[in-house]
Simulated scan of single mutants.
Amino acid sequence: MASTNEAATRSRRLHTVKNVEQNVKEARQKALAAQQRIEILAKPLNAVSQKLARLERESSSVEAAGERRIESLQEALDKKIEKLKADTAAKIEQTKKDTAAKLTELQKNQQGSEDALALEYAQAVVQFSFGGSNADLATVLGITNKAAKELIASSTEDLEKAGISAKQPTESAAAAAAEKEDPAPAGALPADHEAAAEKPADSPTLASA
């Protein structure tokens, strides 16, 4: 009886071990088959993923090259701008110096002309004062009567310092100037001719007597 029970127990144990090994083997085979099936199914996905990765690498490469080019151009531009600023600043300073030198030379050359014109202006003011009043001069120059009076006085003083005599024009000169400005009408006789015409001629009787 005991031997029968032991045999039955041993038989169940062996049967159980055999089943476990078989089950593990079958599970392994199923897993391998599933893995192979998944790999086969995933091949198109892997292919597309590789293509997308290649496109991304190409885009990244182009973008990186563009960024490097832009950076290089920006650096070159910055250098050119700095050089241009320095050159322009130097040219501006040189132009200022040249302009100042030219103005100095021009002022030296114009000094004599300005002095002569100042005296000529003073003469014109004094000559104007001989025939016009302070108010007239003020109206012409657009200044006050007081300023006109002071201008006449200073102009007279400048002429005296320069040794120039400001003489009042004579009546004949003034008349000639007026006649020049307002000429007689065509066909009109001079004043002396008009006087001769108005003088009566000697009668023949008086002449014979």
Score class of each variant (00 low, 15 high):
E82H: 04
N23H: 09
K91M: 12
L119W: 03
A116K: 15
A42G: 02
A86Q: 13
E157S: 05
K18D: 13
R28E: 00
S113V: 13
L119Y: 02
R69P: 00
A116N: 09
L45Q: 04
A186L: 06
D192Q: 04
T156F: 02
L117P: 01
P200E: 11
S133M: 03
A184T: 03
E194K: 15
Q74T: 14
S154Q: 08
A197S: 09
A65G: 01
S165A: 07
E75C: 11
E150A: 10
L55I: 06
A100E: 14
K18F: 08
D158A: 13
R57D: 12
T156A: 04
P44S: 04
H193K: 11
D87S: 13
A162W: 06
T4R: 09
A33T: 15
L55F: 08
V17Q: 13
L137W: 07
Q94S: 13
A135N: 11
A90W: 04
N134T: 03
K146F: 08
Q36M: 12
S165N: 07
D87N: 12
L103H: 06
A86I: 10
K97F: 10
V125C: 03
R54P: 00
A138Q: 06
S133A: 02
I92P: 04
E171I: 11
A173H: 03
K146D: 09
E67I: 10
L84M: 14
R57W: 01
A7P: 03
A64D: 14
D98S: 12
A27D: 00
E150Y: 10
A191C: 00
V48G: 04
K199H: 06
S59H: 14
S129C: 01
A124S: 09
A162R: 06
A64E: 11
Q29F: 00
K30P: 00
A186Y: 06
N5S: 09
E67Y: 03
Q94W: 03
A64L: 10
A186E: 13
L45T: 07
